[in-house]
């Protein structure tokens, strides 16, 4: 569970982002202006900031720059209607880590938030239960029934991502993002290798199946 500050002047949009994040195991707080965000940041510790760009008084760029001066490591995610190149460039220059263009996909928002948190090494303690299979992200352990199945961190991360979004296909490159700690020159074939290993380890488990989506990637299908 991570503490997330949502800075967005559109009340309705702010509410829904907070609601969604809270529904999915995060602890989100709303701020409707940059000034309010500063005040909240004095009183609370946040693990991540989601911010709009076009806001009254202090805009997102200025806000991000200020935050960066005080806290150089906190992940900042911009959610904005502006998709022009200049503002993107400006966003990254002011120290923003990721960028999403409105209207956003809520699943994608959560995916990106989680990726940013992982990159910032914020423990995101989550448990996933599929049939008899139980995944614990803090202990990096998987058990099927009473039997614990030994997995490496990478295998765990890939499987966790796939099972968190059943029936959604992830490209091999997207799954490779789970290895963010190793250099980007790693071949996509590495993902195939991990998938084969996972399939072998869970061959006897019939709660889910990992399907190959030809030419694109993989998806997890939960057996009904």
């Amino acid at each position: 569970m991570a503490n997330i500050l949502v800075v967005e002047d559109d009340t309705k949009f702010n509410q829904i982002m907070c609601l969604y994040l809270n529904n999915h195991g995060q602890r989100a707080q709303a701020a409707f202006q940059a000034q309010e965000a500063y005040t909240k940041m004095y009183n609370h510790l946040f693990d991540l900031i989601i911010s709009d760009v076009m806001m009254p008084n202090i805009d997102g760029f200025e806000f991000a720059e200020k935050v960066r001066q005080i806290n150089p490591t906190i992940p900042i995610l911009f959610v904005t209607a502006r998709d022009d190149i200049q503002s993107k460039r400006q966003g990254f220059e002011s120290g923003v880590d990721d960028y999403m263009v409105k209207p956003i996909d809520m699943t994608e928002l959560l995916l990106r938030v989680k990726a940013l948190l992982r990159r910032a090494n914020v423990a995101d303690n989550q448990r996933l239960e599929i049939g008899r299979t139980l995944m614990d992200s803090q202990a990096v352990s998987i058990s099927v029934g009473k039997e614990a199945i030994p997995v490496t961190v990478r295998e765990f991360n890939i499987l966790f991502k796939l099972l968190s979004y059943p029936n959604k296909t992830f490209s091999r490159a997207q799954l490779l993002d789970e290895f963010w700690d190793i250099d980007s020159s790693t071949s996509l074939r590495a993902v195939d290798v991990y998938i084969t290993k996972i399939r072998n380890k869970f061959a006897s488990c019939n709660d889910f199946q990992i399907m190959t989506v030809h030419g694109l990637g993989y998806k997890a299908v939960i057996s009904s």
């Binding site: 559109d10 309705k12 949009f13 829904i16 982002m17 609601l19 969604y20 529904n23 209607a81 263009v101 409105k102 209207p103 956003i104 996909d105 809520m106 699943t107």
Partner: peptide
């Protein structure tokens, strides 16, 4: 895009 974003996110929630 602001209203579209609101509509879409409420619908998907």
């Amino acid at each position: 895009k602001a209203p579209l974003a609101v509509i879409k996110s409420y619908a998907s929630t």
